[in-house]
Structure formats: structure tokens, C-alpha cells
Computed example of a mutant assay.
Amino acid sequence: MRIVRTVVSLLLALFFLLPLSWMLVVSVKDEAMKIKGVLDWYKPPYTLDTYFYVFRETSLLRWMFNSFVVACAVTVLVVLFTSMSAFALSKIRFRLRGFVFVFILAGLMIPGEAMIIPLYQVVKELGMLDSYQGLILPAIASPFAVVVLKSFFDSVPNELIESAEMDGGGLFKIYYSIVLPLAKPAIASIAILTFIGQWNNFLWPFISITSEELFTLPMGIPTLLSQYTKDYVRPMAINSISSLPVIIVFLFSRSRLCAG
């Protein structure tokens, strides 16, 4: 039975890796090569000229830098603020705690698209349109992350918190010395989901950014792909480059999580 599960798992892995491998192979093909069948995509010759062209003639690296800055900043701030909020809701007794949690839960029922217009008006009044601040700050609020982390913090024994308080530990020390290390799997999951979500975010940058030098990848890539609608190689090279950071972050986070 174990052998069957292993074989099935390997087949599923190959099935899901096939589109990725096809994208990578096509991205290193010669644009002038004639393709008569599917197998012709995997036959040599191979070349990196398309990658050199993309790096030299487009603003892809600049857009990738913008996406990386925004995604990293949002991820760090979301993990920081939502973990503190979840810790307060889970382990600190205060009036209206239940109401606050229900209010946060209600935020999950409101589609993000429904808040675009009021959010745009607020950001405009604050003078943060077409800026990094306008891209980062509106994305910090994450009711989903608060709910997930609170549920995880609820599983931490209250006796552990009380013993730490008896030893003279303050709330903030208990938060970062005891609760956060125990919540590493949940925090890693929130960080990965937040990073990928911001890396792929298109709607808010499309509305709030007008300067090309502040474009993120989801905004910039369509402007490049529209020029090469009859080509496969350049779009695949562009998508390969833009996908690489997300794959690296996912593998790094997974290895760190498994090591922990």
C-alpha cells in the first residue's frame, strides 16, 4: 500500500510540474524555430537570448523590485500587527473583547472589491496615491490572519502564560518569547499566503498607481505581453522570471518551517 501511495504521489507531482517545465523549456527556445508538434518544444537548440533581451529592453527588473518591496513590507507588517491583535484577543481579558472579535469576523464577509471606492478616497485624501505608502498601508488589514492566529493562540495553555507572568514576564515578553515561537507554523502559513497574494495583486495597484516606475509585475507584464501576442517564447521568459521569486520564497519558508 505504501508503494502505491508513493507512486501516485510521484505521478501527481509530475502532473503538476509539467506546465512549469513546459514554461521553462519554451522560454529558452529560439523564436525563429518552427514547431510542428508538442515534442518539438523540448528539442534543442536552446538559447538565453530572450532572457537577455527582457532584462535589457524592458523594465521587468524594476517592476520585480517594486513587487518584492511591497510584498515583503506588507508581509512583515501583516504578521506583526495581526499576531499582536490575535494575542490580545486570545490571552488578554478586556471589555468588549467578544464584540471586537465579531467585528473582525464581519470583515471577512465584505468583498475586497466593495471597499475599493472608499479606500481610494481615503488614500487620495491622505496624498498617498502613486506611492509605495499607498500600495503598502491599505493591505495591512487582514481579518483572515487575525482569525487564524487567534485560533492557534487559543490552543496555547493559559497555565503557560500564567507561569510566565509569575516569573515576572510582561505581556510583550510573553508574546515574543513564548507565544510567537510556538506559533511558527501558523505564522509561516500566513506569511506565505500574504506574500503570494501581494505578489499577484493587480486590482489595487492598477487603481492607485499611474507612474510606470512604480508598476508592480501584475501591472507591467500585460503591457509587455500585449506586444507579443503571436509569440510564445518572450511571454514564457517573462513569466518564468516573475515566478522565480515566489518559488524561492515558498521553498525557503517551507525549509525553515520543516527545520523548526
Rank of each mutant, 00 (worst) to 15 (best):
I174H: 00
T216G: 12
V147M: 07
L182T: 06
R62K: 12
V74H: 04
K150S: 00
P118W: 03
V123T: 11
N200I: 06
Q133G: 13
I140F: 07
I92A: 04
R62Q: 11
Y51D: 07
D154H: 00
R93Y: 06
P222M: 03
L251T: 12
V8H: 09
I192D: 01
L203D: 00
V76K: 03
K34G: 14
M23A: 09
G37D: 15
F144C: 13
L89M: 10
Y53S: 09
D40F: 11
L182C: 05
L96Q: 12
T75W: 01
A188M: 11
L119K: 08
Y228S: 05
W22K: 10
L18N: 05
M128G: 13
K150G: 06
V246R: 00
A183W: 04
P111W: 02
A259M: 12
E125P: 12
R2S: 15
P111E: 07
L224G: 01
I238E: 08
E162K: 06
R97W: 05
Y53A: 10
L224C: 02
F144S: 09
I247K: 00
L251E: 08
I3A: 15
G168P: 09
T58E: 06
Y120K: 04
K29G: 10
F250H: 11
R95W: 14
K91H: 08
V26S: 09
C258S: 14
I192E: 01
L126K: 00
F195T: 03
T50E: 04
A188H: 01
T216H: 01
S9L: 15
T47L: 10
P118F: 03
R254E: 09
Q121H: 10
S21H: 13
V54S: 00
S240Q: 06
I241D: 11
A73Q: 04
A145K: 00
G169L: 04
R2W: 14
Q121P: 11
T223L: 12
I161F: 05
P218A: 05
M219K: 08
M128A: 11
A13N: 14
P143T: 01
Y42M: 13
L160P: 04
S21A: 15
L203R: 02
I110E: 06
Y228L: 07
F144E: 07
P222L: 03
G112K: 04
L225F: 01
R97N: 06
D49F: 05
N201M: 10
A106V: 10
P143R: 02
F65C: 12
N239F: 06
I207S: 07
P205L: 10
I116P: 11
F15Y: 15
T82S: 11
R2P: 15
P45Y: 12
V148P: 13
L17S: 14
F81P: 08
Y175V: 06
L135A: 08
P44Q: 09
N239H: 08
G107L: 04
A145N: 02
R95V: 11
S59R: 14
M1F: 13
L160D: 05
R2M: 13
V100C: 09
S9P: 14
